[in-house]
Amino acid sequence: MADRLSSKPQTPKRLAILGGLVSELWHDKAGFIGFLVIALITAMALLAPWIAPYDPAAQNVMARLQPPVWLANGDWNHILGTDNLGRDVLSRVIWGARSTLLIGASVVLIAGTIGVIVGLVAGYAGGRVDGVLMRIVDIQVSFPGILMILLIVSVLGPSTLTMIIVLSITNWMIYARQVRSIVMSVRQVPYVEAASVMGCRPRRIIFRHILPNLVTPLLTLGILEFTNIVLAEAAVSFLGLGVQPPATSWGLDVASGRDYIFIAWWLITFPGLGIVLTVLSINLFANWVRVTTDPQEREKRFAYSRAARRMVRPAEDRAVVR
């Protein structure tokens, strides 16, 4: 009890913070399921060579267009059936997760880095630099999105690498805008002014005092952007200008299953479900992250949630007893 009475604010242990977060996530069922599903999909992508029953490119003419196991003529060798070349759909879905997650993660990292740097420079420097940089952002935001991507990809030649580059240079603007607006407001805060009066170099101010404010908004934005990238990659791959065979991608598989929708609905259904599950679970998880990292939303939730009451009660009870 003695430590509770001291006037010094306690610094909670890291493990305790993590434990608290996990318990909060557990109590937000939608967020928890989202997290679980996205963790499973990530594990599936990482372990693809070991868990996929077949080589995703291995063709088997004898077993073409086999239906999934629960339909008549389906068998356990190909749980989700086979495609027009006799390739195992389950294996292709598992491997497809790799391209999707790889492209999504790389684009968010690259575009995020570009956007954060531009936003920091624009917000911190202000004046003419800010004007020019933000004008570039405004102009590029008005570009005709996917059409432009298609034109660029068709000239450069489609591949996974081209995809990453093109999506990165067409999606960095939103980070720059958000970072700039936060930097502009944080710059006015006394501790930043104090640091600059004390003679801190701009670099130190930016990285030491301003950047930490950006972490949680950028986290939420990055997670949400990830879903946009997944959908964009799927669309471009579906049009045949994204990931190229023999590599696999869910969008690509839907495109190749398209010619067989009259006789083999499973060819488009399962890769598409992969996309839906990924995007949906990330959306659910992102919603939890947004609410958890936003102090105002947290307060609302703190007032309502049972988990919060459980955390507050013991302290209050003790105070009353004393």
Binding site: L231, I275, V276
Partner: peptide, 22 residues
């Protein structure tokens, strides 16, 4: 709404074709 935002349009279009046309 959340489901609608998570579904790629080309996939929804193909499913609609399978259900309503095929």
């Amino acid at each position: 709404g959340l489901l609608g935002l998570s579904m790629p349009q080309f996939w929804v279009g193909l499913l609609l074709i399978v259900v309503f046309s095929v």
